[in-house]
């Protein structure tokens, strides 16, 4: 029995060692840091909730939080809608399906930096093809470098483009896993296309949709590179998101305490978003053991 415990322990040890060294211990240290005043070279001093108070009274923090919330909500919902539509279209059976899926997956392989190059070019006010097209239609182009709202629109478009393959694949796999019989039954009962969608497909896909949405919520909340590379948070800090705010606090303004407080707010927010899912999982795990 002892040998057995050692075997198990050694099997999970590498994974756990990495997790603890890179994630668990640093997070705990971060929490400690958030209650101290500290920057490079200076001794840490306990300051209680001061860092949090300072962050929460900082207008730039709230602007960053607001920007993040808007972008995340828009991105996640549009992705879910588009992903669902595509999943249903593909599930109907299309010719060259494997090839089409390969095409849809392509953006998954693209780095944030390369994606920024593409979308910057497409929407370049002077030479961009999409700007030209919008002009042709009598629509104004995106002044993404000048107008904050336009910058956020471009960031959202870019995020949707990069992450749609993930949402699509989850929903598509879930749709394929639905048993054919329920559709047979709906047909026999004379249900219309809309009725079938509303009363059969949608409820059955709901768990997968919630799962995809949860994952995307948590990951979209980390949004950093797209904003950093596109607008750098500017002009005048107007397009910052929380991760960019944290980065600037820490590495530009050397306010490690404030950055740590922001970091903990991010961790807690992520945990809260995932709380119902974690709760269910914990119960399953307990049943498992």
């Amino acid at each position: 029995m002892r040998e057995n415990f050692l075997t198990r322990f050694l099997l999970v040890a590498p994974t756990q060692a990495m997790i603890w060294a890179v994630l668990v211990v640093p997070s705990v240290y971060l929490a400690w840091l958030s209650f101290h005043s500290s920057s490079f070279g200076a001794d840490a001093r306990f300051v209680g909730w001061e860092n949090y108070a300072r962050i929460l009274s900082d207008g730039y923090f709230w602007r960053a939080l607001g920007n993040t919330a808007i972008v995340v909500l828009v991105v996640v919902h549009l992705e879910l809608l588009l992903g669902l539509g595509m999943a249903l279209l593909f599930a109907q059976g299309l010719p060259f399906r494997r090839l089409l899926i390969a095409c849809v997956l392509a953006p998954y392989a693209v780095s944030e930096v390369a994606a920024v190059v593409m979308w910057r070019f497409l929407f370049d006010p002077d030479v961009g093809h999409v700007s030209y097209l919008l002009n042709l239609l009598g629509l104004p182009g995106l002044e993404w470098a000048v107008t904050p709202a336009h910058g956020l629109v471009l960031v959202s478009l870019l995020s949707i483009w990069m992450h749609l393959p993930f949402t699509f694949m989850i929903l598509y796999a879930a749709r394929l896993a639905l048993p054919g019989e329920v559709y047979e039954a709906a047909k026999i009962d004379g249900a219309s296309v809309w009725q079938t969608f509303r009363n059969v497909t949608l409820p059955l896909l709901m768990p997968a949709m919630l799962m995809a949405m949860l994952f995307r919520l948590i990951f979209a909340f980390r949004l950093f590179s797209e904003v950093w590379l596109l607008t750098g948070g500017g002009p005048a800090r107007s397009t910052e998101v929380v991760a960019v705010y944290l980065y600037l606090e820490a590495f530009r303004y050397n306010a490690f305490g404030g950055a740590a407080a922001t970091g903990w707010i991010m961790v807690v927010a992520s945990l809260l978003m995932a709380a119902p899912y974690l709760w269910r999982l914990a119960k399953e795990q307990r049943g498992d053991a």
Partner: peptide, 11 residues
Amino acid sequence: LIPPIVTTLPL
């Protein structure tokens, strides 16, 4: 659930 940027700070 821990955002990567959060770990850059202590690491």
